[in-house]
């Protein structure tokens, strides 16, 4: 099989890493832009989250689109991680004896720490999903669908906000090297484009860092208003046809 032959070579593996990383990169941009609804207020972000579930509902059903995206992202993540493990094993084997006197000429902090930032991000993504998507881990009050309130409650705790911001820094670091590498591995880079591609990599990683970490910073500094309780009149209409939002505090059930 040609695809297998392609995957067997390091260049083929790099292409797979680049494409799967690219998918995750696009998701991060989307996620960050979605987070910006926080600045529209509680109603905006909560209804944005609801809209993600009702998007193309007639075709995919409630939450169907979201699940397709999740499965795609999970596949990309698996491909990314598994392929990198294979590449790292090949790379480690290639130099059994290390230099006694270490020298660094072109490596950057970002490029040298890809194998540190990567696993850290992976662990954080799991925790992040457990905290904000499934609500399995609830260090602070959690209610499904009440995105603004969940974020607000979590980011009132200084260490949750701090861990979030530190992890965004690692993501920024990972992207700073990863995005440019993606273009290089895919053979898109050349002498003319290099400067622009480096710029895209630098700027987008900084924008993603600032975009994501602005939310916990603003919430912790009380620069955003606290959430209004669900019982108030401003409560957004978040009732899907297949499901009613669980309105009670605390306890909730997966539909």
């Amino acid at each position: 099989m040609r695809l297998l032959r392609f995957y067997r070579s390091a260049i083929g593996k790099k292409v797979v890493v680049a494409l799967s990383g690219g998918a995750l990169y696009l998701f991060l941009i989307g996620h960050m832009l979605g987070n910006m609804w926080v600045y529209g207020g509680q109603e905006d972000i909560d209804s944005y989250s609801h809209h993600l579930r009702t998007f193309m509902e007639d075709f995919f059903g409630y939450g169907g689109f979201l699940w397709i995206a999740r499965i795609g992202l999970l596949a990309a993540l698996l491909l990314h991680v598994v392929t990198i493990v294979l590449l790292v094993r090949q790379n480690r084997k290639a130099r059994p004896e290390q230099y006694r006197h270490k020298h660094r000429a072109a490596r950057t902090l970002a490029s040298m720490t890809m194998l540190i930032s990567g696993p850290l991000i992976l662990v954080y993504v799991v925790l992040h999903i457990l905290q904000f998507t499934t609500g399995t881990v609830q260090p602070t009050a959690y209610e499904e669908g009440a995105v603004y309130a969940n974020l607000w409650n979590a980011f009132q705790v200084w260490w949750i906000a701090l861990i979030y911001i530190v992890m965004m820094f690692f993501i920024c670091l990972h992207l700073y090297h990863g995005v440019w590498s993606m273009f290089q591995s895919l053979g898109i880079n050349n002498q003319d484009r290099n400067k622009m591609l480096r710029m895209i990599s630098t700027v987008s990683s900084i924008v993603i860092f600032v975009g994501f970490s602005s939310v916990p910073t603003m919430m912790w500094c009380d620069m955003l208003p606290p959430p209004t309780p669900k019982e108030s009149a401003q409560q957004p209409v978040v009732q899907g046809p297949d499901r009613l939002l669980v309105q009670s505090e605390g306890g909730h059930d997966e539909p």
Binding site: G12, K14, Q90, N91, R92, R107, S111, Q184, G187
Partner: peptide, 29 residues
């Protein structure tokens, strides 16, 4: 091993050969 795009090779090359050729080889491959 495989390329991790550090650019150490380009720096050490006595003939100052560019990383752009690696991108070109990836494209051809």
């Amino acid at each position: 091993g495989g390329c991790t795009n550090h650019g150490e090779c380009q720096d050490a090359c006595p003939m100052e050969i560019s990383l752009a050729f690696i991108s070109r080889m990836n494209r051809d491959y």
